[in-house]
Design a binder for these strands. Structure first.
Lengths: 350, 350
DNA sequence: GGCTACATTTGGATCGTTCCAATGCAGATG
DNA sequence: CATCTGCATTGGAACGATCCAAATGTAGCC
């Protein structure tokens, strides 16, 4: 770290104490609203605090009390609106509880994740909310944060399961149920040839969604053709490029459950280029309900995950853990909600 | 703030010193990589640090050295992808410089902004990067952060100009030049009847963009009709609703410079509903280059503001300020870049 | 041996706060 | 008058690091 010129002297407890002829201890009691101090004294001290423009030094207090007033929030990709909303929700709830958020973004790099965790730890957060980078390993994360640190995992599991990290709490989306709901919805719309489009099978969220799709297909007695599972990068461009693979063999699907909204929007682009009108000639569902989903042409049927609410929930869970460090580890599965729009129109006879 | 159970005892300098028979001071020197220590001693100490799983307590060090290793980042709306990208850029650069980011989001509320600033200040950040909430006043912000705190203002000016806050640095987008470039581009495409669509005149960024548009129109010797200036909320829905106002009188415009991308996308929606094909029958430009702009139908001509790069730049500016507190206040106007896509097609004769 | 020169190490004070045991003092009680 | 109670206040030792002046050891030189 660069060296900086020393800061100008700040007003401290001692200055206030000297300023109104009491001891440091008394001023400290006033600051913490203790009922022990005489109200006359309190008024004098409070006046002096204002007069000198005192600002509380929480770091010093934390040092003495061996407490913390911050929580680290480590996000794999802050540029993604889903995670940005999540971060906003976390910060909102932590702020209300008197904690400050230490931010770290990792850009999906496990090396950066290690570096960020190491740096944040030194600032002594009370706990960590971690949305892991892709490929992040339990053992390396554990060695960076230490065995005592309260951790809440969001959105993804870590690779390699260690018994030592079993005590970490988890907040996951109900990926499987969401995909099942989307699939059931398409079936109810009359579709029988339904693809699962986009994402990579080795991503945990993708394989969960795929499992939900399969579950619904089986339950309805439908079988899947091999070419109905198309893997892509979870981006719009790549999804658009892979659209044609759905139609390279018979029977062609008439609908697709997509890994997420980005992929679904990409697929709709690809369909349009083939001359198919999404929502009319071919039904599409997404996952996430990003802002854009409501405004695409046609508006996209998708699963709302309420990232901001999830952020608030994550903060609540971690705060609960701090209150009771001995409680059993919890795994919370957040519900997702099917939002039906026009992209998932009913099957039309050819 | 809630009270929490006290943390388990942590490994300190003293433990390490005792563990390998040297003094605290020596261990401290090792930690800071001082050349004064004998390499044999250093090796022994480093071994002990690993063995005991020592983590550096930066708060304690900062207290003693009267320095800071954190920067507060206060964002008006973190859910907005533009600001999320900005935050990611800030965090990236601060992290590389050894600083940690204290996050605060205000949700465009000036009361929350005050509360957030007050809370962050107590953690002793070395400086603040502030993207003000709408309607934020210089005097209240100043009283929350104090006169000594280095502040970098991003994106918006504060209301009410105080001489005392003139020393704050600024990073603003080149709104005027951007809108001028967009307008000039439409003129070069042969358009003569060009509207300025969306936003409210009392927003500083909007009035700057409008001024740029007017500048280009004047320079080209073109006059504007009154109904070519349509004000809307800066959202897609509202923009779509106001589309028809452009055509309520003669001469109708053949192109529009829009306040931002959201508005431009909404306008394109409205045009389509009128039976006009954007990019073919009517040219449209946006502002911001949000992710969606590249994928809309047709892809949107817009001005790239590179929010992540702006974040990095903001962090650099603040770090420079910390290095030299006496330097004159700077105002940086970040360039914007015209990205020509298909929404701004040439004028076709009727 | 006594001297300086150099490399290494160290005790103790300090940063701004909180904790704790102790103090002073008023009035009540025996 | 001595003792007790309860209230309000206080000095001094922490918390975990850094700074500084001083101490230690070791080698070289006359």
């Amino acid at each position: 770290m660069e060296s900086l010129p020393p800061a100008r002297r700040k007003v401290t407890l001692t200055d206030i104490a000297a300023g109104c002829g009491v001891s440091r201890a008394t001023v400290s009691l006033v600051l913490r609203g203790s009922p022990l101090v005489n109200k006359h004294t309190r008024a004098r001290v409070e006046e002096e605090l204002r007069r000198q423009g005192y600002v509380y030094n929480r770091a010093a207090a934390n040092l003495r009390r061996r407490t913390s007033s911050s929580i680290a929030l480590v996000i794999n990709e802050l540029g993604n609106p889903f995670f940005a909303e999540f971060a906003a929700g976390v910060d909102e709830t932590l702020g209300a509880a008197g904690f400050v958020t230490l931010l770290g973004s990792t850009s999906e790099s496990t090396e950066r994740e290690q570096a960020v965790l190491g740096s944040l730890i030194e600032h002594g957060p009370g706990g960590i909310i971690l949305s892991p980078a892709e490929g992040s390993e339990a053992s390396t994360v554990l060695s960076a944060v230490g065995p005592q640190m309260p951790v809440l995992l969001f959105n993804r599991e870590l690779g390699g399961s260690l018994p030592e990290y079993a005590h970490w709490d988890r907040l996951m989306l109900d990926n499987q149920r969401g995909a099942r709901m989307a699939t059931e919805h398409l079936i109810a719309q009359g579709h029988r040839h339904i693809a699962f489009f986009g994402g990579h099978n080795d991503s945990s969220s993708c394989s969960q969604r795929y499992a939900g799709y399969q579950q619904a297909m089986h339950a309805a007695g439908l079988s899947e053709a091999a070419h109905w599972r198309v893997q892509t990068a979870p981006t719009r461009v790549d999804a658009a490029h892979h659209c044609n693979e759905l139609f390279r063999a018979d029977p062609a699907p008439t609908a697709a459950v997509c890994y997420n909204d980005a992929v679904a929007l990409g697929l709709m682009l690809g369909l349009a280029q083939r001359g198919l009108q999404p929502g009319h000639d071919f039904a599409v569902t997404g996952f996430d309900d990003i802002a854009e989903a409501a405004f695409s042409m046609p508006p996209l049927t998708t699963l709302a995950t309420s990232p901001r609410a999830r952020g608030r929930q994550a903060a609540q869970l971690l705060l609960a853990r701090l209150r009771d460090p001995q409680a059993d580890a919890s795994t919370t599965t957040a519900p997702v909600q099917l939002v039906v729009r026009e992209s998932s129109g009913p099957l039309r006879s050819p």
